[in-house]
Amino acid sequence: MGFYVLSYLCIVVFIVAAAHLVYRQLTLPVHVRWEIYPVQHETTDKLSHGGSYMEDLNWWEKKHKSSLLNEAKYMIPEILLIRGLWKENKSLWRVSFPFHFGLYLMIAAFFLLVLNGLVILWGGSCLPPGGAARGLLNSLIVLTGWTGLILGTMGSVGMLCRRLADPELREFSSFADYFNIAFILLFFLFGFLTCLSGDPSLEGGKEYVFGLLTGGSSLNGYAPGQSFTSGVTIVLASLLAAYIPLTHMSHMFMKYFLYHDVKWDDAPNLPGGPTEAIILKNLALKPTWKAKHVEADGRKSWLDIASSAPKEIK
């Protein structure tokens, strides 16, 4: 039961930490525009050269158009294939891609295992064991699991070696950077060893996730941690899930905000439009910057200050 408790705790930490990160982003004040081109949701005629709607004469009189398709065309290879790194830093991509793709496949495998557990619980009648659908599910679990573990192990070994060997990376790396990679490497390695040493079809994974879904019920007499490697894998996987949102590795999902709320946030503030009210709220905030020329006293708002000229220089 100890394994389950640990996993539940870690899942709670993950959810709370990730929700906190996301919530914080959603509640930050609307900032000034700081987009950078190409903005990938631009229409094709603009995107082909990285242009913006501001290239049009009297653009504010036209309906603002954007293209979800163009955004998807960029985002999907960016997320799945780490396209940006491929373009800008190929040698790093060679280790970074298997590392990240390995992690994605692990996430995919986890959700397939959850699906498998749900099917066992409730889908037995429509998806009978031995049927084609269950066969497919089992094969997908094996495929994603094995590919993920192999790619992930290779990738994390590669990332670690690269960070150690390349002075540019090494000299700017801290203990935490190595720890993070080593942590992930150990997770991959133990998962890999577990599967290699007698569980090629990830039965242990199926049983453990089933147990997770059912508060610890056992399937086929399974008890977590039957082998050393599988026990370590469960512990590492759980801790990793809790750890990621506490570090810069949260870029896994926080990248959404880096792109959508900054790099691609080109939404104009049209006269009389809804953004003006938000801006007025910001302008009512009261800064306390100390330099004399700011002339902030904690009572004056940004609006007061912006509409006055400084009396002092410094």
Partner: peptide, 11 residues
């Protein structure tokens, strides 16, 4: 003090 760039800066 920094509503103008707070979110981009934090990220």
């Amino acid at each position: 003090n920094n509503w103008t760039f707070l979110q981009p800066l934090m990220l």
